[in-house]
Structures are given as structure tokens and as C-alpha cells.
């Protein structure tokens, strides 16, 4: 089982990757995903699960979910 973790902007630049297929053996929390991909120190941080923005880091992430780890938006 894997989850797809996407990185954008300066976070992708810092990690040197835009995507990480993260293997999981069971459901984990969003906070655990952030830790496992090395983003615990990334601040500020915006988060989305399956393209829906979420703030609660206790959100449960399941196999095949898509998690986005994003810096503050800067469009326009």
C-alpha cells in the first residue's frame, strides 16, 4: 500500500522532489506523513488530502490517498 505525497514551491525545492510514493502498512495520521517525508520543520505549511484543504493533522490517511504539502499560496 502506498500514498502519494506531493510537494510544491519552496518545499519541493528544499526536498529536491515534487512527489513521493510513500509505502504504508496501515492507516496513519497526516502528522505522521509530514514527519516521514521530512517536513516536520517546514513552516508555514498548508495541507490537502485528496485535493481538499485540511488543517487537522490527526486526519487519517489511507492507502491510495493523495496528500499535498504546500507553502502559502502566492498566485495573482
Amino acid at each position: 500500500m502506498t500514498i502519494r505525497v506531493l510537494f510544491f514551491g519552496m518545499i519541493a525545492a528544499k526536498l529536491g522532489r515534487h512527489e513521493w510514493l510513500l509505502p504504508i502498512s496501515h492507516e496513519i495520521t497526516l502528522a505522521e506523513v509530514i514527519e516521514q517525508v521530512g517536513c516536520s520543520e517546514c513552516k508555514p505549511l498548508l495541507l490537502a488530502v485528496n485535493q481538499q484543504q485540511v488543517k487537522d493533522r490527526t486526519t487519517i490517511i489511507r492507502a491510495n490517498d493523495e496528500v499535498a504539502i504546500m507553502p502559502p499560496f502566492a498566485g495573482g
Binding site: M10, A48, A74
Partner: peptide, 11 residues
């Protein structure tokens, strides 16, 4: 609102 809520970034 676009600047706050739309996931677009610029370098």
C-alpha cells in the same frame, strides 16, 4: 481571495 485560497505559487 484568489491570493489566499488558490494553490498557485510563483518564483
Amino acid at each position: 481571495e484568489l491570493k489566499k485560497r488558490v494553490p498557485i505559487w510563483k518564483k
